[in-house]
C-alpha cells in the first residue's frame, strides 16, 4: 500500500534551527541536529534540511551540520540551500544526505536537474518550487529564499522539471509559510495529480486538518511540517494518529 510521508522541514541559519513567516522574519528555535534526532526517533518518515543563508563562506559549517545529523539518524535526509552544480550536490551526498533539493540553481540552469539525475539517480534530485501568490490571484516561482521573482508559472515548471528528470517535487507556498493558515490546496491540486512524480506539500500547516486537506483534496504524496512541530503545537505521533483516523494511510 502507499503511505503518506510526514516530513519535518528544518530551516537552518548560522548553525541554528530557525523558523520564519513567508520564508522571512526568522526566529531561533534551537539546534537543528537535536531537533532532527528527536523527530527521527518519534516517527518522522524523512527529514528536509534547508540552509537559508547558503553562502559559500558558511558552507563548511553547513556541511558539518549535515554530517553530524546524518551520522545519528537512520531515515532519509534531503538537503537544500545553495546547490548550484553536480559537484555541490556531491559534497552533500558525501556528507550523508540522501537527496538534494534545489530551487535557485535549477531555475538558473534547468539542465542541472538532468545532470544530477543522470549522475546520482532521479531519486536524488528533488526539484524545489517556491511559489508566491500574487495580488491578482496568479502564481509565480521565486528564487533566493523568496526574494527574487522569476516570471515562471509553477504549473508549467513542475511539468518541465519532471521531464528534465526530477524524482520528486517539493512545493512550498511562500504566502502560507509560517502563517498556520494551511497549505494552498487549490494550487496543490493543480500540480500534484498532474505530474507523475511524488509531490511534497510545504508551507502553512497550522492544524491537523490542514494535513488531511493537502492529502485528500490536494493529492499530496507527502506533507512537510515545520512551525507546528518546532513550536510544539503537536507531535509526529499525534499527526499520525489523526491522519489514520481520517482514513489516510501512514506508516505507524
Amino acid at each position: 500500500m502507499k503511505t503518506v510521508r510526514i516530513i519535518p522541514k528544518l530551516e537552518v541559519k548560522n548553525e541554528n534551527l530557525i523558523k520564519g513567516v513567508h520564508l522571512d522574519g526568522l526566529r531561533i528555535v534551537g539546534k537543528p541536529e537535536e531537533a532532527a534526532l528527536k523527530y527521527a526517533e518519534t516517527g518522522a518518515d524523512e527529514l528536509v534540511y534547508i540552509d537559508l543563508v547558503a553562502s559559500l563562506y558558511q558552507r563548511d559549517n553547513w556541511i558539518k551540520i549535515v554530517k553530524r545529523t546524518a551520522e545519528k539518524i537512520y531515515i532519509p535526509l534531503t538537503v537544500g540551500g545553495g546547490i548550484r552544480s553536480v559537484d555541490d550536490a556531491k559534497l552533500f551526498l558525501r556528507a550523508g544526505a540522501d537527496k538534494v533539493a534545489i530551487n535557485t540553481g535549477i531555475v538558473k540552469r534547468p539542465k542541472l536537474v538532468t545532470e544530477i539525475a543522470q549522475k546520482f539517480g532521479a531519486q536524488c534530485m528533488v526539484a524545489s518550487l517556491e511559489v508566491q501568490k500574487k495580488s491578482d490571484g496568479s502564481y509565480e516561482v521565486y528564487t533566493d529564499s523568496g526574494r527574487t521573482p522569476t516570471g515562471i508559472d509553477p504549473i508549467q515548471w513542475a511539468k518541465r522539471v519532471e521531464k528534465l528528470g526530477a524524482g520528486e517535487i517539493l512545493l512550498t507556498f511562500i504566502h502560507q509559510d509560517g502563517t498556520y493558515q494551511g497549505y494552498d490546496v487549490s494550487l496543490l491540486k493543480k500540480i500534484a495529480p498532474t505530474v507523475g512524480v511524488p509531490v511534497i506539500a510545504s508551507g502553512g500547516a497550522g492544524k491537523l486538518a490542514h494535513l488531511t486537506d493537502a492529502v485528500k483534496s490536494g493529492k499530496a504524496d507527502a506533507v512537510a511540517v515545520a512551525s507546528m512541530l518546532h513550536f510544539k503545537k503537536t507531535t509526529i505521533g499525534k499527526i499520525k494518529s489523526y491522519l489514520k483516523k481520517s482514513g489516510v494511510l501512514v506508516r505507524k
Binding site: E168, V197, R251
Partner: peptide, 29 residues
C-alpha cells in the same frame, strides 16, 4: 506514482533468518 518513494509494509512468505525479530507487516523505506 513511480518511483515508489516512501514507507511500505512487507508480508512474510516464509521464515528467514534475515527477518528474525521483524514483525509481519512491518514498514520499510
Amino acid at each position: 506514482k513511480l518511483p515508489q518513494i516512501g514507507w511500505n509494509q512487507i508480508k512474510k512468505q516464509h521464515d528467514s533468518l534475515l527477518l528474525k525479530g521483524v514483525a509481519d507487516k512491518e514498514f520499510f523505506y
